[in-house]
Amino acid sequence: MRLRTIVPMAVGILAVGLAGAGLRADPVEDKLVIDGEVELVTRAKAPEGHPFDEVVSGWHYRTDETRALQQDSFANPAMLYVERGAEIWKTVQGAAGKSCASCHGDAAESMKGVGAHYPKWNAAAGKPVNLELQVDACRKNNMQAEPYKFDHADQKALVTYIKHQSLGAPVAVDLTQGAMQSWWDKGKDLYYTRTGQLNLSCASCHEQNNGKYIRADHLSQGNVNGFPTYRLKDADVVSLHGRLRGCVRDTRATTPKAFSDDLIALEVYVTWRGTGLAVETPAVRH
């Protein structure tokens, strides 16, 4: 555990150092192939109504070293979370005496492709749910177990594991179900709303300036197809809501609550912006 985490971290620091050496404006031309076997779609024609012609995975904006880490599932430190997720999947928890596997069997079959369609309309909840909320719903209703505290290591591990079962599947949220379209609309509004003392919107950085450097950070389109993602800076897996909270907080705005209606709406919209990109979970980023 120790060694596998520390080695990539050192590489990460090196990688950050290199990023500043030459200010490269464009995302790198390269192919994302996991373990020399599975090639993932990292560029896709944008869906209608998208501000770009092409959506590009954040992987292309990272250094050679960081991109390489993601291509080797032994070197990818987040694969430990996948392993931990697999353990939780078959562990009995809660008063009902059940594990996820009791009902869903082999995740490689039952969860294959599932994560690529989240967030998803949930009629009972009357709103879109993301994977974290769906897992919590199963824990509460089907296992009589407590929902996870936001960003509990087990929550991140289980969601990483489930999403990993969609590795390579194209991101596709279904906006025709329920009121998904109005959540998309709300998410879009939020995406273009300037927040905080610094007065910046998501679009200020990820739409107007992607491809540019903000200090040492090469700005990507801000796609979410790699979440939960291993972040070298944190030496840890970061959940999507963790990342969104960080991006909003950095504008010196009040940090929004995880799973709040605002962040779910933003998740619906931002996920749609990456339509057609392969799920990369767990991705590796700075």
Binding site: Q197, L198, L200, T251
Partner: peptide, 24 residues
């Protein structure tokens, strides 16, 4: 422009408590 106003109170929405009513 994305350049912040460094001595202006024209901020975005939801300014964090610590920065409310303050210039950068």
């Amino acid at each position: 422009t994305v350049m912040p106003g460094f001595y202006s109170l024209e901020a975005g929405v939801d300014v964090a408590e610590a920065f409310k009513g303050k210039t950068i």
